[in-house]
Design a protein around this nucleic acid. Structure first.
Length: 601
DNA sequence: CAGGTTAGCACC
DNA sequence: AAACGGTGCTAACCTG
């Protein structure tokens, strides 16, 4: 038994480090005296909790003044004491609970479902107060940021620097120190114990600061986090044979095109500088400049050259593409998958300032949509088929409902082609060719993003004058949208934030109040998808869900009931928003995800 | 040389 | 009057 003391907000706090089995008696006494709730944290060998070598090392429990550090790595009795404490407590307060509950599930055998109901996640609370990261002008939502803002700048800096310093002392990196550090190292134990003490202090400060409008979101967001944690735990099955073959094929492609680029005098196709040098040497005039003033060589330029038959530009494009696809996706899947060939995404349910999710591990939100070869890596479970249900034009329907724009509402009710409708408003009743529709589509989405004529001009290549008239036509055709945008911008400029129908408060930079419309539309769309997830969860579909991707849910469904399941999922997800039905579209493929994008199986 | 920044590109 | 919203990942490059 060892006791370390420290001072927080002028108050002495104690870290009790369990050393021997006999120390557990006092630990259990502490837990018994605080059954109503404690802050909890864990330390593992690394963030890759599904890797075969990953282990949990410490589990910590604490209140505002005392933390107990339990060295579960030392074996059974310690592990058992931590397990009993987790199961016995009435409430757990955890910073980023998704991680620790996954650790307890995987390493201590406590199903997440048993703990989520009694968990309060301080990160969720913090995001309902200010969803922005620190570098985006907000308070930030990491424990370090929250400590800095609500408790003490010094302690935040000290705790942050602590593990970095230990890493340096051990001549290793910040990612590797977690498994190398001695379990009883006093500073490591201080770091571990302080987490709980800080979290225990934060929860009481965060709760009263949550806007009244957002109070119902507290339980909602905890449920969304639970559902996504469950999906992450299930993981997505990888077709290993296909994925390995694809990796080799991409390697070969990269090598072939790299050789061609080299024959033109370019050693490194990934160096924009080198590529620019070779292009200029070949007589290409590069007009574009990056924000820092360097010559810009992007896909627009390269595509133009490829269209003119430039073999060097083609080689650069192909070599870069093959490498990116292999390293960003294919090899990541092979590296990240567990012993059962499953990849576990990490889903941050409240990542963006609008509340949008982010998915890492499987970078599901950025997989190529125009080609099936990457998605073909993921397959349904044995005896199952891949299904996908997405919302039809989700953001535009949400916009129509929020802005109460009568033209848009009618268009969706009648099943009209909204892009065509904008095209006719801009180019007259005879507008019907693909080009007009494409321009109209750009304007429809662009206006939601806050873009103006310049954006349309740059994105479509039409003249600035035509772009202006198309944008004007949009604003005249959908007067409700223009009025709603003005109203939101005014509110944002006045109070610095807007509030969504769900009660979420979204800060808006005063110099960019035009962005308020997009924030509300994007955030409300996200809420629609998440309400859909909650309905699916309550109907028992969670074990079949694989990934949520913005306006879409991907599932693996038993073959004999796949069509029934996809229809049921679609019905549950669809939501009536006032006069607008935010409708859904079910799709059932074959075994692989790629089958929904044109792959054969 | 770890860690941060920039540029490019993948998505909704 | 004009204003393109939100992400993640890799490689190259820069810095302390």
């Amino acid at each position: 038994m060892r006791e370390q003391t420290y001072t927080v907000q002028g108050e002495a706090v104690r870290i009790h480090v369990v050393e021997h089995e006999s120390d557990l008696t006092r630990f259990k006494d502490f837990v018994r005296r605080h059954l109503r709730g404690l802050a909890v944290d864990s330390e593992t060998t690394g963030l890759d909790i599904y890797a075969p070598t990953n282990r949990v090392r410490l589990v910590q429990f604490g209140n505002k003044t005392d933390a107990w550090v339990v060295p579960v790595e030392h074996g059974r009795p310690f592990e058992e004491a931590a397990r009993r404490a987790l199961l016995g407590l009435d409430q757990l307060v955890i910073q980023n609970a998704s991680f620790d509950l996954a650790v307890f599930d995987r390493h201590l055998g406590i199903p997440q479902e048993q703990l989520w109901d009694k968990t309060v996640d301080t990160q969720i609370l913090a995001k309902l107060i200010d969803p922005r990261a620190r570098d985006k002008g907000g308070i930030g939502t990491s424990l370090e940021d929250l400590t800095d803002h609500y408790i003490s700048t010094e302690i935040a800096a000290e705790v942050k620097g602590l593990m970095a310093r230990l890493a340096k002392e051990h001549k290793t990196t910040k990612t590797k120190i977690w498994k190398l550090i001695d379990l009883a190292h006093p500073e490591y134990n201080l770091y571990a114990g302080m987490d709980c003490i800080l979290v225990a202090r934060l929860v009481g400060m965060l709760l009263p600061r949550i806007p009244h409008s957002a109070r119902d979101l507290i339980s909602f967001e905890h449920e969304v986090a639970e559902i996504c944690s469950s999906m992450a735990r299930t993981g997505f099955l990888v077709d290993v044979e296909y994925t390995r073959a694809l990796s080799s094929r991409l390697s070969a492609d990269e090598q072939r095109f790299t050789e061609i680029a080299r024959s033109f005098g370019c050693d490194n196709v990934n160096s924009t500088e080198q590529v620019a040098d070779v292009l200029e040497h070949r007589g290409v005039i590069i007009n574009g400049r990056t924000p820092s003033g360097k010559r810009q060589v992007n896909s627009t330029l390269l595509d133009t050259l490829v269209a003119q038959g430039d073999q060097f530009a083609k080689a650069v494009k192909e070599a870069k593409r093959a490498r990116k696809w292999r390293t960003t996706w294919v090899d990541t899947f092979l590296r990240e998958m567990d012993v059962d060939s499953r990849c576990h995404a990490s889903i941050n349910t409240l990542q963006a300032r609008t509340g949008r999710m982010s998915i890492t591990g499987i970078p599901a939100q950025t997989l190529p949509a125009g080609d099936w070869i990457i998605r073909r890596c993921f397959i349904a479970d044995e005896g199952q088929l891949i299904a996908s249900v997405d919302y039809k034009a989700q953001e535009l329907r949400v916009l129509a409902a929020l802005a109460r724009d009568q033209t848009m509402i009618r268009a969706f009710a009648e099943g009209a082609d909204l892009h065509m409708m904008t095209a006719r408003a801009a180019f007259g009743p005879e507008a019907n060719d693909k080009q007009h529709r494409k321009i109209a589509k750009t304007v429809n989405f662009g206006r939601v993003y806050g873009g103006a004529a310049k954006m349309v001009h740059e994105a479509t290549g039409i003249s600035m004058d035509t772009a202006k008239s198309v944008v004007d036509a949009f604003d005249r055709r959908y007067p409700g949208v223009a009025a709603y945008s003005r109203q939101l911008a005014k509110v944002a400029a006045g109070q610095g934030y807007v509030t969504t129908p769900s009660g979420r408060r979204l800060p808006v930079d005063p110099s960019r109040s035009y962005a308020a419309l997009n924030y509300v539309v994007q955030s409300t769309s996200r809420d629609v998808t998440c309400r859909g997830l909650v309905k699916l969860h309550r109907a028992g579909f969670t074990p079949y869900l694989r990934l949520p991707i913005h306006d879409e849910v991907v599932a693996s469904l038993p073959s004999d009931r796949a069509n029934w399941g996809a229809d049921r999922i679609a019905n549950l997800m669809a939501e009536q928003m006032g006069p607008v039905l935010v409708d859904t579209d079910p799709e059932v493929g074959s075994r692989s995800w790629g089958s929904l994008y044109g792959a054969e199986h």
